[in-house]
Amino acid sequence: MSEESKKPPAPSSASPEASGRFSRRWFLQGVALSAGTAVLPGEGLLGGSAFAAPQAPARIGPEPVQIALSVNGKDYQVKVEPRVTLLNALRNYLNLGTNTPIDLTGTKRVCDRGSCGSCTVILDGKTVYSCSVLAVECQGKKITTVEGVAEGNQPHPIQQAFVECDGLMCGFCTPGFIVSSKALLDRNPHPTPTEIRRALNGNICRCGTYNRVFQAVELASIRMKVKGG
């Protein structure tokens, strides 16, 4: 909350990051404006396209630039300032330029300084803190958020196991734990308890439900084995 709340109110045409007044109302106003956004000059640079002049590579920003993000298998056109983190982009910017509301707020903003793990997403197969990644770096990369873990309407075995093992109390850290567990089981379907602890060492639970969390991951791993996963 801190950075946004300090900023003075800005005209409604400014981006959410600058104005600090992102809201559904802002979104509804913004849709009409940004639906047909033209391609910006900075776009080609990040795609790694021909950039012949080595002495003066282009810079983008600080004003918003249009980029493409691939989240849970879907491509989104997003207009963000370079300072916007992946976390912020996922939670607040995916809606822009579309007519359908996109609710990807499962990735939680808690510490916003790379210490707690609630904002964990999988970036090209590796877990990262999305609060410590810039959205502009993520072009061409595959992003998986907690919303991408379930298989359609069926909860993933990890999610089911969290429910059954009571792997949460307040639940705010849970999306991060689910994503880290998913990344672990993708790489290592049958981890030892030590491997589970190691894989979840970047996620913090203030309620202290670690034991249940570890049990849930173990249970999920066993079930996936039975299913031939």
Binding site: L45, L46, G48, P54, P57, R59, G61, P82, R83, E137
Partner: peptide
């Protein structure tokens, strides 16, 4: 967070050029 520009040089020379500037 302060507004920043972002550059992603593809070669060492490009990067050196940016810092020199």
């Amino acid at each position: 967070m302060k507004a920043v520009m972002y550059a992603c040089p593809q070669s060492l020379d490009e990067a050196v050029g940016l810092f020199a500037q």
